[in-house]
Amino acid sequence: MEMFLGYVKAFAIGGLVCMIAQILINKTKMTSARILVMFLLLGVFLELVGVFKYIENFAGAGITIPITGFGSTIVKGAKEGAKIGLFEAVTYGFRNMAGGLTAAIFFGFFFALIFRSHSKKA
């Protein structure tokens, strides 16, 4: 039951985050790159002010699967590194990005070799 509730929360909060993005798209005609950057920075901001972990505890994947989660892991890494020293402070954030980036670049390369882009057929 508790697990099921977790999914409901993830669905609701995840859907809500996407809906806010959709409102921005409808109102301002922002392109997808801008939306992604904005939500990444939102995640960074929420993590910096310390709110993110409360939302994460509540919503789980609802906030970590949107790109806001990516922003928060970056700050988490930076926070960890700052305990060690200056060099680690500026590099550990990127270290936390490494998983996602590696996956995106590798799969991007791999799938672009296999697949070709096609015209939309609406």
Binding site: I25, K29, T31, S32, S117, H118, S119, K120
Partner: peptide, 11 residues
């Protein structure tokens, strides 16, 4: 505009 496979919404 964008690459064909980019999931954008036409206005």
């Amino acid at each position: 505009r964008y690459p064909l496979e980019l999931g954008t919404q036409p206005t």
